[in-house]
Nucleic acid binder design. Structure first.
Lengths: 257, 257
DNA sequence: CTTATATTCCACAGATCTATGACATTGCCC
DNA sequence: GGGCAATGTCATAGATCTGTGGAATATAAG
């Protein structure tokens, strides 16, 4: 029963805190910042049982951090707005900045804050404009479909080895994934390098790209082509703030971060 | 025992989540984003008993969100870095965006997202440059001392009525406080208006100002003068990122938000 | 060394949160 | 309407968190 005092304000905010006090809920939220998913898919992705996953999702729904959409017998959950993703990003940033353990874990898998492996967004835009690089989205196809960097090729990590031949060995690859805590892109880069290709990771992932105000394309996957920079063919989706799809050559910095 | 897997990452982040699951801890963190304080002061400000406050602070310390400094027999807590404040800001933003209750509470006290009462940072810089406005910091003096907008006058809300005479009735007042969830500035504006003065609130508070990359002055309070825009006299403090103190006329937008 | 002050540590009872399997719902299909 | 499949709800046992008063520490001043 809020009476309008300051204490009630913090009590409300604690509803949000309740969501991120449980590791699996952070995991779920992180996934939902990439793309909407059914309960089934979420349970599978996080290794939870159905009823447990559902319970967690209820907690998240009560905090209004997620919303649902029903399709037949299936319920799709999604992040309830850009602020949610921003919050998750802030949580991750804080973790990397303050918790040495986080950096350790990342470093242990080769995703640490090493060296010149990282490409900034500005640099990517620069080099994509001149067609020097191939941008590779190594996330699962659903996430690519829900939103990707204009002109990026979808090549999920799990298929990377099998489809290596589709890449032009002459071009440098810039891979990206879910964000700084995601291991997909670093792994992809390691794989590519082991094959003698030039490859680097994009700093951050798609959520940060979107949060920086840069254009995002939604729509179906197109198979990776071998050489010429593909022309973007997606449609602007619900989340994309009225930006026409542009490929690397047209991309521009929106509000710089 | 982290083994380096993805689950461990989220487990680490949940340490941070643990901090913001309790309303009082959010309250404490919010206070610490304004200025460092002793346990005693924090307990008093939040209405907690000593041992309880201390316990909460330990939780926050274990999550590395706060750090301490000892001075004699007293221990001062402070936010462990700018990322912490950014996270708290993100939490507040998320609350306002997603939880209708938060907006309701704010509105109930007149701090709602009403109308033209709000001045943007850009507008303030504009108008301060031409000397049209007085910038008023209505937070407690310790918080002013820990960091304030260059050229701002310190006039804590509790003393506002008593010191009304110190304000030049000819100038518009722009009051600011801790942030969007803080009620000090709106109350101050209400009081000033009731006295026939022109007054508005600055959007957001000092943490957001700092996060926007704008200059912050630290140092002792100088009493509110009556007319002429005072020349800033503070020292850049630990938190101020190497910005020379500037008053309104020199202030510039750093990185726009 | 003794006293006083500000914190931290500890143990415990009461409250809250979690995971899970059984059971109830909801919408689709025949 | 009956049968399925995907979710949501519930009750429960076990684990974790909270508030608190009192003991234990640490620092400063006598």
């Amino acid at each position: 029963m809020p009476d309008g005092g300051r204490a009630d304000l913090y009590e409300q905010l604690a509803r949000i805190g309740k969501v991120v006090v449980h590791p699996k809920r952070i995991d779920l939220l992180d996934l939902l910042c990439q793309a909407e998913r059914s309960v089934e898919a979420l349970a599978a992705a996080t290794g939870l049982k159905f009823s447990t996953a559902s319970a967690h999702l209820q907690v998240m729904r009560q905090a209004r951090l997620v919303e649902t959409r029903r399709e037949g017998t299936r319920v799709y959950y999604r992040a309830a707005g850009e602020e949610v993703c921003r919050f998750v990003t802030a949580l991750g940033d804080l973790g990397r900045a303050r918790l040495a353990e986080v950096d350790q874990i990342l470093r242990a898998i080769g995703a640490g804050s090493e060296s010149a492996e990282w490409v900034t967004r500005a640099e990517l835009l620069e080099r994509a404009r001149s067609g020097e690089v191939v941008v590779l989205d190594v996330r699962p196809v659903e996430e690519y479909a829900a939103g990707h960097i204009p002109g990026a090729l979808s090549l999920p990590l799990e298929h990377l080895e099998a489809r290596l031949g589709e890449l032009d060995p002459g071009l440098e690859v810039v891979a990206y994934c879910r964000g700084p805590l995601c291991l997909l892109a670093p792994e992809a880069v390691a794989t590519l390098r082991a094959r003698g290709l030039r490859a680097r990771c994009l700093e951050d992932g798609l959520p940060e790209w979107r949060q920086a105000g840069l254009p995002v394309t939604t729509g179906a996957e197109r198979p990776a082509a071998s050489s010429s920079p593909p022309s973007a063919a997606g449609r602007s989706g619900r989340d994309a703030p009225a930006t026409a799809p542009v490929d690397g050559s047209e991309a521009r910095l929106g509000r710089p971060r």
